[in-house]
Structures are given as structure tokens and as C-alpha cells.
């Protein structure tokens, strides 16, 4: 089966080009990559979780895939066709949809829900005999009452606004859904609702989804595969269950260990990592994670590791992936034994 979406060596570079900036700094640094050499593929009907901390470039990557930000280098192939020109991206966006991060802010405050839901079809010039009926059908799809067509976005609760966001994303029957933090700011009881809804509709309509999030507890249950980003680069990809049970990259292991556990009997005793994510302006030499890595060795500081396959369907960017040799494994289990009591 050929992938629905393939991204090859994609880089996005933000260049400071303002006049003031050039006056202050006449010899600027060459463009720095916010997303750097990302290679990724998504099979039809698959759910991929794109995980990283703020500043890791995950949202930028998702937006670039849909052509909302221009890539500096690399290829995007969607349904077997190269996507390059603005016309290509428009054609791609007819078959793909984005759910933006802030559900209320991404709905125009002056338009009613009915208008918002049918805007995609109008923009794409699709025939729609009865706009109101189409909007009601979409509301029914996401389990909202038909009377919501006349509501304004500010009259919706957070969960309802998400549902409208889901309905609008699915209005064009996309083959690909990109959801940027679909549950940020929602209560746990409502978060499950929105994710179950996306899951049900996925089974029913068969689209593939890429979910961008920093929420590990949630993504564990809704994704088939995970891609972990750090400073604009992928550091690990693999099947979700395997990544959680046996992470290869120390950064992935760190993320999983940092998550607070809702059980007072299993309190963590030491933070898994200290320090903060460095800035892309000053990318560390060698492996970017070496400044925070609990298992750093001298080679990591000078030599950048390659992104290489490790076992079936897994990739990692690390000189000393976990669980390869006995030595590393021992070191990590010692480190985690110190970090977790009982």
C-alpha cells in the first residue's frame, strides 16, 4: 500500500528580514531551521501522533504540510502526487483539513455556526443546494442539535466548539485530518468525548489523521504510530505501544518519565531531566539533546547522530539508543530506579 502522505527531508526556515533587524545586525546568521530535514509518511486510515514540547516545531510542520507556511527545502507527496505550487496545495486542501489549536478563536466571531460549517464547500466552489440542511447534517454527524446552526461561536462551550471544529474539518470529506492540540484546554471528561468522536468518525469515514500534541497520556490511546520531535527534528518514530513500552531515544524516555502519575503511591523523586529546551537560534553542537541528556557521552557533543532505522518500523536519532547494549540499559534502569521510588 502506498502512503497517503509522504514528507521527505522537509525544512522550514524563518529568516529575520526586517529593515530594523538588518540595521541592528548587518551580518545576520544564515537562516535557522525551525523544522529541519523531517521525513515522515502516513498510511491511509492511520493515526499518527506528532509529539514534542513547545518550540519543537510540531505545529509549524503540520502547517507546512498543508501549505500554510512555505517550506525551504524538501518534498511533500500527497496521494502519489508532488505538491509544490499554490494550486497543488489548494487541490490538496480539498482532500485534507486542519483543526486549529484554539477552537473558539478559529471560528469567526461574527458568523453563525451554520455559515461557518459550510464555508469550506463555498470556498472550494462545490455545489450545495441547501446550505442550511448541509450544516444540520454536519451538526448531526458530530452529535450536536440542529438548532446550533443559528448560534454564534461565543455561545458554545469549549467542548461544543471543538465539535464544531471537527464538523467543519470533515465538511469536505477529507482523506487527511490534521488536528493541532485537539483537546488542549478541555477537561478530562470532555477530552475523551472529543477523541472518541474523532475515533468513531475515522472508523466510519476512513480518513487518516495526524494529531499534534504534547499530551502523552492522551496520545497513547488514540494513535497507531508516534513521531517525537525535538528542536525541529524527528528524534524517534515507531508504533505507539512499542515507543511507550521501550523508548529508544533518551528524550522520549524523559518525556514519558516526566508525566505526573495520578497515583500518590508512585510519586517521582527526581525530575527526569533538568534545564530547558534550547533555542533553535543556538542549536547545540553534535546531538541537540546532549545538553539535557542523562546518558550523554563525549561523542554526543561533537558528532551529530544520523536518523536511522532500528528494528521493524522504528527510527531513532541517537548514537547510543536505549536497549541496544547491556551497558546502556543498565545505566538507564539505574537512573530510573533513582528517579522513581518504590
Amino acid at each position: 500500500m502506498s502512503p497517503l502522505l509522504a514528507v521527505e527531508d522537509l525544512s522550514v526556515s524563518f529568516v529575520r528580514s526586517g529593515l530594523l533587524d538588518r540595521l541592528i545586525n548587518p551580518f545576520p546568521l544564515p537562516g535557522f531551521n525551525v523544522v529541519d530535514g523531517v521525513t515522515l509518511s502516513l498510511m491511509p486510515a492511520e493515526t499518527l501522533g506528532l509529539v514534542g514540547e513547545s518550540g519543537s516545531g510540531k505545529t509549524t510542520l503540520a502547517r507546512t504540510i498543508l501549505g500554510l507556511i512555505r517550506a525551504a527545502a524538501g518534498r511533500i507527496v500527497f496521494e502519489g502526487r508532488d505538491v509544490q505550487t499554490p494550486a497543488d496545495f489548494r487541490a490538496m486542501r480539498r482532500r485534507s483539513a486542519m483543526m486549529f489549536q484554539d477552537p473558539v478563536a478559529s471560528l469567526s466571531p461574527r458568523l453563525r455556526v451554520g455559515t461557518l460549517l459550510t464555508e469550506p464547500q463555498v470556498i472550494q466552489g462545490l455545489p450545495m443546494p441547501d446550505r442550511r440542511a448541509a450544516a444540520k447534517a454536519l451538526l448531526a454527524l458530530v452529535g450536536l442539535p440542529a438548532s446550533f446552526v443559528d448560534r454564534f461561536p461565543h455561545e458554545l462551550s469549549g467542548g461544543q466548539a471543538r465539535r464544531v471544529g471537527v464538523a467543519r474539518a470533515l465538511a469536505m470529506k477529507p482523506h487527511l485530518l490534521l488536528a493541532d492540540e485537539p483537546t488542549a484546554g478541555l477537561d478530562v471528561s470532555v477530552q475523551g468525548d472529543v477523541l472518541n468522536l474523532i475515533g468513531e468518525l475515522k472508523r466510519e469515514l476512513g480518513f487518516a489523521a495526524m494529531i499534534v500534541t504534547h499530551n502523552l497520556a492522551m496520545i497513547r490511546h488514540v494513535s497507531d504510530r508516534l513521531a517525537i520531535m525535538y528542536l525541529g527534528r524527528l528524534v524517534e518514530t515507531g508504533p505507539t505501544q512499542e515507543v511507550f513500552s521501550a523508548p529508544l531515544h533518551p528524550y522520549t524516555a524523559t518525556l514519558i518519565r516526566s508525566e505526573p502519575i495520578p497515583d500518590p503511591r508512585r510519586r517521582s523523586h527526581k525530575p527526569a531531566v533538568t534545564g530547558e529546551i534550547p533555542s533553535v537560534f543556538r542549536r547545540p553542537s553534535g546531538c541537540e539533546f546532549h545538553t539535557r541528556c542523562p546518558l550523554v557521552q563525549s561523542r554526543c557533543k561533537t558528532e551529530a547522530p544520523a536518523y536511522r532505522p532500528m528494528g521493524a518500523g522504528r527510527m531513532v536519532r541517537c548514537h547510543f539508543p536505549l536497549q541496544t547494549g547491556g551497558q546502556e540499559r543498565e545505566a538507564v534502569s539505574r537512573a530510573s530506579a533513582n528517579q522513581r521510588g518504590n
Partner: peptide, 10 residues
């Protein structure tokens, strides 16, 4: 972020 959250909790 989660790594910073763990540090502040600590």
C-alpha cells in the same frame, strides 16, 4: 511543558 512541570513539582 511536561519536563518543566516535573521540575516545578519537584
Amino acid at each position: 511543558d511536561v519536563t518543566m512541570e516535573a521540575q516545578i513539582i519537584h
